[in-house]
């Protein structure tokens, strides 16, 4: 375990908790894509199938449970919580995310590290995580609403990606047999999509800031 990876896991967890607390505190999820949050929950559920078969460390097991629980908590909040679900932009969050699920699964069946049930679902979760931000990106472009996408959420999401890239570079130079090319290539695509998302976030934030200037 190197510092980049640990910090990456922490910032990833914080980004999820910041979003969950923001939704729960303001009892509003306007501007948040439920489809992206559902894809994230699916990413964790399909990536941690080895939760009960392979024990790597207490840290690994605890973090997997926390990621699954917190991502499901956000989906539950947006689907079930009376007040929150009323503020959901149902008519704007229309990205056909099942196409992303189908595409990533097809790719995972073709490109994986080993043609086994667990490895195919692991590759699927890696590909899905890379594109999961798309419904949120489209929603942000349509609504321009950043009320619930706090700057902290964006910052921690970006930090998570940057730290994981540093982690892979670090492991490439320090470990003899480090080959995670599926995760690395997919991670670079994901970081590119996040950069695009941040760009639209900045535009919306700047635009909103202008709107709120005293007339």
């Amino acid at each position: 375990m190197n510092i980049f990876r640990f910090a990456g896991d922490m910032t990833h967890l914080i980004s999820i908790l910041v979003l969950l607390l923001k939704i729960y505190a303001t009892k509003s999820c306007s501007g948040i894509s439920l489809k992206t949050q559902e894809l994230y929950a699916l990413v964790f559920l399909t990536r941690y199938l080895d939760l009960f078969t392979d024990f790597i460390s207490v840290y690994n097991t605890v973090m997997k449970l926390v990621f699954i629980a917190s991502s499901l908590a956000i989906v539950w909040c947006m689907r079930m919580h009376g007040l929150v679900k009323r503020s959901y932009d149902k008519e704007l969050d229309t990205f056909r995310h099942y196409l992303l699920v189908a595409g990533c699964f097809a790719l995972a069946v073709l490109v994986n590290e080993k043609f086994t049930f667990q490895e195919i679902f692991w590759a699927f979760s890696i590909y899905l995580e890379a594109v999961a931000i798309l419904p949120q990106l489209v929603l942000l472009q349509r609504s321009g609403n950043v009320d619930n996408l706090t700057g902290q959420y964006i910052f921690f999401l970006g930090a998570y990606r940057a730290l994981y890239l540093l982690n892979w570079i670090y492991r490439y130079f320090t470990e003899v047999r480090f080959s995670r090319w599926i995760a690395c290539v997919s991670g670079i695509v994901q970081t590119g999509l996040y950069a695009d998302f941040f760009y639209y976030y900045f535009l919306s934030w700047k635009n909103n800031a202008k709107l709120q200037l005293p007339a």
């Binding site: 990876r5 392979d54 790597i56 690994n60 692991w122 982690n167 047999r177 995760a183």
Partner: peptide, 10 residues
């Protein structure tokens, strides 16, 4: 035992 590096990253 699985000799390859297990998926130790989250």
């Amino acid at each position: 035992a699985k000799d390859e590096v297990t998926k130790d990253e989250l």
